[in-house]
Computed example of a mutant assay.
Amino acid sequence: MGLREARPMMGSAMSGTLPPTHSPDVASAFALRATADKPLFRATPAAKEDPMKSLLLLTASGPLLILTSHESLHDQKLLEVLRNKGIGKFVAFEVPLSLARTRYGGHFQAVESNLQETDDLRVLDFDGQRIFQLFRFDELGAPNLKEQS
Rank of each mutant, 00 (worst) to 15 (best):
A47P: 15
E112H: 14
D25S: 10
G106A: 06
S12N: 13
L140Q: 04
H74V: 01
T44G: 02
D120G: 15
P96C: 05
S69R: 14
M9N: 09
D119H: 15
A27P: 02
A29M: 03
A34Y: 00
S12V: 12
E94A: 02
P20W: 09
F90H: 00
D125N: 14
F30L: 05
A34D: 03
Q76A: 07
L134R: 13
A27C: 05
E49D: 10
M14S: 15
E80N: 11
T44E: 04
V26A: 07
S12R: 11
E117R: 13
L55P: 01
L115N: 10
L56K: 09
D125A: 13
Q148G: 06
S61V: 13
F137V: 12
F132R: 14
E94R: 04
P24Y: 06
L79Q: 15
L56N: 03
V26Y: 11
G2R: 10
E139Y: 11
F126H: 06
R33T: 11
N84C: 09
G11A: 14
N84V: 11
L55N: 03
V81H: 11
D125I: 13
P20Q: 12
M1I: 12
L82M: 12
S113W: 00
K77W: 14
A46L: 14
S54L: 05
L67T: 09
P39Q: 07
T118Q: 06
A46Q: 14
P63Q: 00
L121P: 01
S54R: 03
E5T: 08
L82Y: 06
K89R: 06
E112Q: 14
H22C: 09
P20C: 09
G88S: 10
T35R: 13
A31V: 01
M52H: 15
D120E: 13
Q133S: 12
K38Y: 09
K53Y: 01
L56C: 04
A31D: 01
N114H: 07
G106M: 02
E71V: 02
N114R: 07
R130S: 13
A60P: 00
L3G: 07
G11R: 15
V95N: 08
E94V: 02
A27N: 03
N144E: 12
I66C: 04
S113F: 01
S98F: 06
L79R: 15
A31M: 03
V111G: 06
L55K: 05
L73V: 04
F30I: 04
T118Y: 04
R83G: 01
V111T: 14
P51Q: 04
R101V: 10
H70Y: 15
V123I: 14
L99N: 03
F41T: 15
D138G: 09
V95M: 09
M9W: 15
A100I: 00
L99I: 09
E112F: 15
T17D: 11
A100Y: 00
I131S: 06
Q148I: 12
S149N: 06
T68S: 13
S28L: 06
A60N: 03
S113T: 15
F132A: 07
L79G: 15
E94Q: 07
G128L: 03
L134I: 12
